[in-house]
Amino acid sequence: MKNHTDVLIVSQNEVPSFGYLCRSVTNSSDGRRELEVRAAPSRKRSGMEIFMNEFSRRHPAVLFLYYLLVLFLTMFAVHPAALAASFGGAFLFYLAENGVKTAMKDLAYYCGVFLLLAVLNPIFSHNGETVLFFMNDRPVTMEAILYGAAMAAMIVSVIFWCKCYQTVLTTDKVLYLFGKTVPRLSLVLSMSLRFFPLLKEQAGRIGKAQKAMGMYAKDSLTDRLLFHVRLFDSLLTWMLENAVETADSMKARGYGLKGRSHFSLFRFEKRDGTLLGAMGILTLGTGAAAIGGMYRFHYYPGISAMQTGLWAVASDLLLVLLFLLPFLIDVKEKILWKISLR
C-alpha cells in the first residue's frame, strides 16, 4: 500500500510533482535574497525513522538553548576569529550530519553567496580610511570590503546553523517545547504536518485521475496554470471534508476536556546535564573574556590590530570549543562506535 502511493508522486514530471527540491531560482544579481527557494537537503528515507546523529539525541530543551546561544553569538560577533569559529563549527556539523558530498556542494554554492554579499557592502558603504580605488567617483575602501566579508561570513554561518537546525530540532521537538505554552497553536502546527503527506498523495491521485479524463492535458502554460488551480481547488474541498472527520475523531477521544497533559518520549538524562554544564562553563568563560575586552574589534575607521598573547588565544579557544560542540559530540560517538565494533 505504502510503496504504491508513495511512488505515485515521485514518478513523472507531467503529473504535478511537489517539487520539494526546487533548486532553481537563485538570481541574486539584484541583491535580493532568493536563497529561500533553495531546498533543504532531503533527509527522508522512505518511511524509516530518520537516522539521528548523536548530538540530535540530546534533550530538546538543551538543543534549543544551544541554538539560541549560537545564533546570538554569531549575530553579535564582529571578531574575525569568532566568525571563523562559528562558520567552522556550523559547516563541520553540517558535514557530519549530511555527509561530505552534500556539504561540499552546499559549500560551493554558499561561497558564491558569500562573495556576492561581500562585494555589495563597499558599494553602499564608503567609510574607512584605506581607499583602494574609485568607482563612479565614490571611494571603495579596504575596510568596507573586509567589513562586508565579515557580515557575509556572519550571514552564511547563520544559514548553515539554520540548515543544521532543521535536522536537529525537528518539528516534534519544537512542539514538545512549546506544546504547553501554546497548546492550540502547536496542535495546528502538528496537524498541518500530518496533513501534508496526505495532501501530497491525494495531489498525485487527483493529477492522474484528471489527466486520464483528458482535461487540461496540453503542455501550454495556461493549461498548466489552470490545471494547478483545479488541482488546488479539488484538494481544498477534499481536505476540508476530511478535516471535519479528524475533528470528530478528536472530540470522540475527549479533546477539549479540562486539564490536558502532555506526553513525550523525551527524557532529561545525565548526558544532557553534562552538555548543559559544558555549555554553561563555556558561556561564562566567553562572557568573562568579552567583558575583559578580548573580543573587541572594529573595522572603521581602520581595522583594529589583532590581539595577541596567551589570554587572547585562550578566549578564542573558548569560542572555538563552544561552536564545535555538536561536531565533536558527533565525531566522538562515531569513533566510539567503530571501536566498540572491533
Partner: peptide, 24 residues
Amino acid sequence: ESQIVMDKVWHELAFGLENLGEPV
C-alpha cells in the same frame, strides 16, 4: 486516514490519554 490526528504513531497513541489529563 482522517481519524489520525498526530504526525507520529507514539503521539497518536497518547492523544486520548493526554486529553484525559493522565500523568506522563
